[in-house]
Amino acid sequence: MAGHAVEHDYHLIPPSPWPFLSGVACMIWGLGMVVFFAGLVDRTGESPMMEFFFANGLDSLKSTMTGDGSVNGGWILLLLGSLMAAYVMYGWWRDVARESEAGDHTPVVDIGLRYGMIMFIMQEAMFFVGWFWMFFELGLFHKVRATWNPDILENAAGYADSMAPGVTSVNAWHLPLMNTLILLLSGTTVTWAHHALMHGDRKGAKWGLFLTIALGVLFTFLQLIEYAELYHLRETGHEAWIGNDAYGSAFFMATGFHGLHVLIGTIFLFVCWARLMKGGFKPEKHFGFEAAAWYWHFVDVVWLFLFAFVYIVFAIGGGVH
């Protein structure tokens, strides 16, 4: 078959360094995660080894914040891994954008990219199914469990109360409502950008996308304010916020992972904006932009579920038991 001309429309890709380098970045980053959160020695034991790599990174973070000032290698590994991952992403996406402009993305390849993005969003949805499952289980059945689980009889009262109806949580009608409106608005601006792009109005597309990114950043900013307030309440021992229970766990992890996905979506939209500013995307072919918009809508829908259940229902006394 040597020298035989390619007669199909699929896209064969020459060898690429990015996947292998992604693996290296993942290794460094994973090592950083363990060193940062756990340290390489037993949490319960004394650390006779090098403080730098072996101490618990979280402790050293706390001591840094209180002015104690010991350094932990986890920071450096996490930073190194993240920088390398950023470099890999830049290179990988640059290659994809170039291939698209070179005409490698034929109609059949374009359909493949769409399948790929749909599958990716499906797995993201299942990831959040995990968090919501945990949340509903804890919220709906906690009192049942308190009555028949002998392991927790010592603490049955506390058990029944955590995530009980009327738990003091964030007021859903302040920052969370703002954030809901921000995300819904950003859904309209991204649609504006999409329609402008399809009709050749590049200026409108740039503005619509810019506003979407700005709203995404604003969402993240408000979320950080909310977290900072909650952290402050917890540190000052304010009774109005019970952060140290199952509700707090579900609240922080579910909204936290959603926040992470907002960040990813914002970066995705930003990359599209950068491509748009450099003259990329055509009215009839702009799947990179559409994928970012799909992802953004997905993040929006997850937020609506969070808002409805984590913020409203369980905080206003809607528990079933």
């Binding site: 906690h142 603490n155 506390g158 109360d161 995530m163 229970d245 766990s249 992890m253």
Partner: peptide, 17 residues
Amino acid sequence: DRIDGGTGFFDPAMGGD
């Protein structure tokens, strides 16, 4: 859950399961 002062999804003392 494993982090000191972390979450309590699976820790009955924190209402987890």
